[in-house]
Amino acid sequence: MRDHDREIDQAIALLREPVAMDHTLDARVMAEIAHVPAPRRLGPVGRAGLWLVRPRPVRVPPVAILAAAAALVLAVVRPWGGIADQPAPEAVPTFTAFAGNVRPTRFMLVAPAASAVTLVGDFNDWTADSTPMTTDASGGLWSVTIPLEPGRYRYAFLVDGEIWTPDPGAPRAVDDDFGRPNSVLTIGGL
């Protein structure tokens, strides 16, 4: 009978060995980004909006699973329709100062039993805790508004740090990550 824990430790040591990737990858990357618009640092207004996307610890209450299971996801309220090509009128006043093509885009989810909801998507590289949503006075409507440039975005909601929830009011993305259902949002150009 082998000591399988020792074998696993040996395997871990092997897995930690460096891997040398093909150096031509660098050239391929640089050739591809030559056709990508240059990234820009967010301007003053955009930075002011970063409070919306600042990192924070994911809240995981002891009864997270039960609470999340009990979360009743009633509907997504997107005043401007399922596929947004116009910002929500009520969201505009706060963000009319965004420059260029950047548009304030509001995401909403009704989940009265949830303790925390975050927005994950292509726009924040699917980072679980970078775009927390806040509740209204009733505690059931979670929302967040973020600046987005015209384009196609995949996204989902993360309820209580556990439950991956697509937007019931938006089309599903066909290229879901890891088998998890995502939604797709297309923002048209100006």
Partner: peptide, 24 residues
């Protein structure tokens, strides 16, 4: 396998470049 890994890596670097303004 290295083939898929290189694809993932290339996509990662390109996405990283595109999103670099969001790297706070």
């Amino acid at each position: 396998n290295r083939s898929d890994a290189e694809d993932a890596l290339q996509e990662t670097f390109v996405r990283g470049y595109r999103s670099l303004g969001r790297c706070t």
